[in-house]
Nucleic acid binder design. Structure first.
Lengths: 276, 276
DNA sequence: TCATCTCACTTGTCATACCAGTTTAAATGC
DNA sequence: GCATTTAAACTGGTATGACAAGTGAGATGA
């Protein structure tokens, strides 16, 4: 009596489940047809898959604002007429997707959807991908290369005076932290993030931040080499100067040189004597 | 007796679990320390979280090639000394991340990691994000705008003769499918995918494909309007011509005009009479 | 009034049973 | 002997019950 929907008579659901799937019943109530691409969907997927789609539609259509509390697992269980595992797996899936937040003892809450959070959830998979395939790592380096150059150009076009001040402040702080390697890297990361944020597009910011993190994890590219801190500072300053001058081409070249230098130095230093 | 590790005496695991967590025992056997960022990790997370990390490390370190069959849930259960739900949730999580493939009746298999598959798994979240926030949709449109321009430039620099032939073949096919809207859109999609694939970077290809799909789902940008098919073809041809001439600037401008036109037309047509 | 504590309610985990697909190998028919 | 069929033994999927553990709010005490 302690657990498991005490109101419903036992066997009632299981019996009806044979005749008509409870999910289809629920679907007919809300009827979200043709959401994405008009599929008849006769496929036999998981039960949790159906539940997840129902929840997803609920999150999109209904007035579940960010931070709102979802029904408890038991309630959903009774509502959908399925067992707890199905509800649970669906909720877990949504959590992995970054759409809800589940904490022990509390009700699940609707997470506010944001690009940044999504990319963060994404990172685990990306790291695995990079760890298993060195080719993908090269591709990512290439992509970041192009991306950062585009960011530099965009920043040169759109920068305001406050943007410029912020960049200079970061570079100054970085120059003052040359002794502390960790702090130096943090400022380096912030520099690139600030650069991307000038565009005003959160997708750019999130991507820049994520790419930096991914590559830093594998000590590839973007790595700061001991003894070369001053060079890094100088290159950052050149980038800022180009942005101040609103010279997109010069900014792109400065960023190009910056990343190329880092990459070349990396290969020269680490590939000669592999591994610490 | 039918289920649940018949060999282990009951209560044996639970008893030891109080004294020393079985996971730490397992960890000490393999000892993957300092994989990502040297965290002491005293946090109290889920049990399934620990299991997932163990499995993750297993996938990365051991010789589990793509397509290899993982141990069954019951085996893992016994191996880690935890219940089936914990193992199950961990596996589900890995499946959502796209690292394993689980089918009813078969053993779970290691999925071959690929950028494209990862982006595909990503799509559900992205769609939700776009459905709930129109601002993000605008940001995505901007990002795709810049991305496609960069792709056009890259293609103009790197295109080979066979790339060119492929592009022209696609445009020809598209011109021949002007009557069938669905087919026309398919060819349009293929055109942009082929353009991105010229770069040789699978990340670009996957992103181009994904962005097209996301935006097409919301009828925003990139939409093909009835009666304007010939214009689309002409613009595609201009892009191909620019790429043939290896003129990056011209290619970028052609792509710019192409996407701008589509966007303007969209606003003019659909915003006047909202919704079908 | 405020701090504390208890208790109801939540999710997390375990255990068991059974269902539903898949594979495999033995039994059967030719 | 060989191909087909059938059944047994896997596999994951679902349901349910019980309990542990965490959270929060209302009751209780000072």
């Amino acid at each position: 009596m302690q657990d498991q929907r005490p109101n419903i008579p036992p066997r009632a659901r299981s019996a009806c489940a044979v005749v008509t799937k409870p999910l289809e019943l629920f679907r007919s109530l809300y009827d979200f047809g043709a959401m994405t691409a008009t599929k008849p969907k006769p496929r036999k997927k998981n039960l949790s898959h159906d539940i997840r789609e129902s929840l997803l539609a609920l999150l999109e259509n209904d007035a579940y604002g960010p931070g709102a509390a979802l029904p408890s697992e038991r309630e959903l269980m009774a509502q959908f007429g399925v067992g707890r595992p199905a509800v649970r797996e669906a909720m877990q899936h949504l959590q992995v997707m970054g759409l809800v937040e589940i904490r022990h003892g509390e009700r699940a809450k609707v997470a506010e959807p944001s690009i940044g959070k999504m990319v963060e959830h994404f990172s685990g998979t990306m790291r695995h991908l990079l760890a298993t395939s060195s080719a993908n790592l090269e591709h990512l380096k290439t992509a970041r290369f192009a991306f950062e150059k585009a960011m530099a150009q965009e920043a040169a076009r759109m920068r305001t005076t406050s943007d410029l001040e912020r960049l200079r402040r970061i570079v100054d702080a970085q120059a003052g932290a040359m002794s502390d390697m960790t702090s130096f890297l943090t400022h380096d990361r912030e520099f690139h993030r600030a650069l991307a944020s000038i565009s005003g597009n959160p997708i750019y910011t999130a991507l820049a931040e994520a790419m930096f993190g991914w590559l830093a994890d594998f000590h590839a590219d973007t790595v700061i080499l001991p003894g070369r801190e001053q060079l890094t500072i100088d290159e950052h300053l050149e980038i800022v100067d180009a942005i101040e001058a609103k010279n997109a081409a010069r900014a792109a070249k400065a960023m190009h040189d910056h990343l190329t230098r880092a990459n070349v130095l990396y290969h020269r230093t680490y590939l000669a004597s592999p591994e610490p």
